[in-house]
Design a protein around this nucleic acid. Structure first.
Length: 195
DNA sequence: ATACCGATTAACT
DNA sequence: GTTAATCGGTATA
């Protein structure tokens, strides 16, 4: 298998379903000939202009959020808390700014490189800021095509049964009112107690 | 020009 | 469980 996900995976489909289906796919970066990858194990859906938790709520367009309005299949990377680079996959068609935040991976390739990038701290990839740090992704990689670019997502054919997925509300979006309660977070948690 | 705050993490107790 | 650190994006003037 190991095929790069095609544009059709990202476009004209429900962003919540895409967030669910991204679990088990493999996120790969190749910068300066250095390849690192990991299986996606946690995601969150951000459902566009009607979602108070989304940067695109109300149709807001800024220099930062503009790439969310591109056709699905590009990256949206932004800086959070002035420190953490957070990687999202833009979905749906042009001018429909849906996105999926990648919150966790299980490292596969380039463990040594990822350890280097962590600068002494233990290699952890179970938070959105730590994912980008391990993979070498920064805001300068926002707006990149995920079909050809240095960042790609692969379908390995590994299928995750629904029973192995925890679903719950998104993290850190308390300001979003009732939208903060939406079950838009997905986590692959084999044989692990619910959180 | 200035002020506020966050799609977080790590280091504490 | 609690909290300091840290700075770009955004709104307000």
């Amino acid at each position: 298998m190991n095929r790069v996900l095609p544009p059709s995976f990202y476009r004209q489909r429900d962003v919540v379903l895409i967030a669910r289906e991204l679990l088990g796919k493999v996120l790969v970066t190749r910068f300066d000939g250095r390849t690192t990858s990991g299986m996606i194990i946690e995601t969150e859906a951000y459902a566009g202009i009607g979602d108070r938790a989304s940067h695109a709520f109300g149709g807001k367009r800024t220099d930062r959020t503009e790439v969310m309005y591109a056709p699905g299949g590009v990256s949206y990377v932004y800086l959070c808390y002035g420190i953490h680079h957070l990687f999202n996959v833009v979905t749906h068609g042009r001018d429909v700014p849906h996105a999926v935040l990648i919150r966790g991976i299980e490292p596969i390739e380039g463990m040594e490189i990822m350890r280097e990038r962590r600068e002494g701290r233990p290699l952890r990839t179970n938070g959105p800021g730590m994912v980008t740090q391990a993979l070498g992704i920064t805001v300068q990689h926002s707006g990149m095509d995920l079909m050809n670019g240095p960042i790609t997502i692969l379908n390995t054919g590994f299928a995750i049964p629904d029973a192995e997925i925890l679903i719950g509300p998104r993290i850190g979006v308390d300001y979003a009112g009732s939208d903060a309660l939406l079950p838009y977070r997905f986590r692959y948690a084999p044989s692990r107690p619910a959180r």
